[in-house]
Amino acid sequence: MRVYDFKEHARWEHFEGKGWQIKDTLPELAIEVWTYFSGWGSRKNEDPPKFVTHVSGSIKGIYLSPTWEEAKDMHQRILEKFARGIAE
């Protein structure tokens, strides 16, 4: 069901069992990477809600994925990219 009400979304976000979250902290780079289901679809068209991977801290980025499997893969690829940068 599509709902564009921020209060309704906030209630949904705090429901137990919503889950679908991965979070990694890389203190040596001062960044955090976390992936979750946003619950928001596009307000401009009928695109469905997406899974979001955020990179925050000294490096910033937001990546969208249509499925949880693709989002987990994106999360892992980002971590591997940063790990290669630390090793070099």
Score class of each variant (00 low, 15 high):
residue 1 M to P: 08
residue 1 M to Q: 08
residue 1 M to E: 12
residue 1 M to H: 11
residue 2 R to W: 07
residue 2 R to T: 07
residue 3 V to F: 10
residue 4 Y to W: 12
residue 5 D to K: 05
residue 5 D to P: 06
residue 6 F to N: 14
residue 6 F to L: 14
residue 7 K to P: 01
residue 7 K to R: 15
residue 8 E to A: 08
residue 10 A to D: 15
residue 10 A to Q: 13
residue 11 R to A: 15
residue 11 R to M: 08
residue 13 E to G: 11
residue 14 H to I: 09
residue 14 H to L: 12
residue 14 H to F: 13
residue 15 F to W: 04
residue 15 F to R: 09
residue 15 F to V: 11
residue 15 F to G: 10
residue 16 E to A: 13
residue 16 E to G: 04
residue 18 K to L: 12
residue 18 K to W: 07
residue 18 K to M: 04
residue 19 G to R: 13
residue 20 W to S: 13
residue 21 Q to A: 11
residue 21 Q to K: 15
residue 22 I to S: 14
residue 22 I to G: 07
residue 22 I to C: 11
residue 22 I to N: 11
residue 22 I to P: 01
residue 22 I to T: 09
residue 22 I to Y: 15
residue 22 I to L: 15
residue 23 K to V: 13
residue 23 K to C: 14
residue 24 D to I: 07
residue 24 D to M: 14
residue 24 D to P: 03
residue 25 T to A: 07
residue 25 T to V: 15
residue 27 P to N: 01
residue 27 P to T: 00
residue 28 E to K: 08
residue 29 L to E: 07
residue 29 L to S: 06
residue 30 A to N: 13
residue 30 A to S: 10
residue 31 I to P: 01
residue 33 V to H: 01
residue 33 V to W: 00
residue 34 W to G: 05
residue 35 T to D: 04
residue 35 T to M: 12
residue 35 T to E: 07
residue 38 S to A: 11
residue 38 S to N: 03
residue 39 G to I: 07
residue 39 G to F: 10
residue 41 G to R: 09
residue 41 G to K: 05
residue 42 S to K: 04
residue 42 S to G: 03
residue 44 K to C: 13
residue 45 N to G: 10
residue 45 N to Y: 05
residue 45 N to K: 06
residue 45 N to E: 08
residue 45 N to A: 02
residue 46 E to H: 10
residue 46 E to P: 10
residue 47 D to H: 01
residue 47 D to P: 03
residue 47 D to T: 03
residue 47 D to V: 03
residue 48 P to S: 12
residue 49 P to N: 00
residue 49 P to W: 00
residue 49 P to F: 05
residue 50 K to A: 11
residue 50 K to D: 13
residue 51 F to P: 01
residue 52 V to G: 00
residue 52 V to R: 01
residue 53 T to L: 00
residue 55 V to H: 00
residue 56 S to I: 14
residue 56 S to F: 05
residue 57 G to D: 01
residue 57 G to W: 04
residue 58 S to M: 09
residue 59 I to G: 05
residue 59 I to D: 07
residue 59 I to F: 06
residue 60 K to D: 11
residue 61 G to L: 02
residue 61 G to H: 00
residue 62 I to V: 12
residue 62 I to E: 07
residue 63 Y to F: 08
residue 63 Y to L: 06
residue 63 Y to G: 02
residue 65 S to L: 04
residue 67 T to P: 00
residue 67 T to R: 00
residue 67 T to Y: 04
residue 68 W to S: 03
residue 69 E to F: 03
residue 70 E to G: 02
residue 71 A to Q: 05
residue 71 A to K: 02
residue 71 A to D: 08
residue 72 K to W: 07
residue 72 K to P: 02
residue 73 D to Q: 10
residue 73 D to P: 00
residue 74 M to A: 10
residue 75 H to C: 01
residue 75 H to E: 05
residue 77 R to P: 00
residue 80 E to D: 12
residue 81 K to Q: 13
residue 81 K to A: 11
residue 81 K to I: 06
residue 83 A to E: 15
residue 83 A to N: 12
residue 85 G to E: 14
residue 85 G to T: 03
residue 85 G to N: 14
residue 86 I to L: 13
residue 87 A to Y: 11
residue 87 A to Q: 13
residue 87 A to S: 15
residue 88 E to V: 11
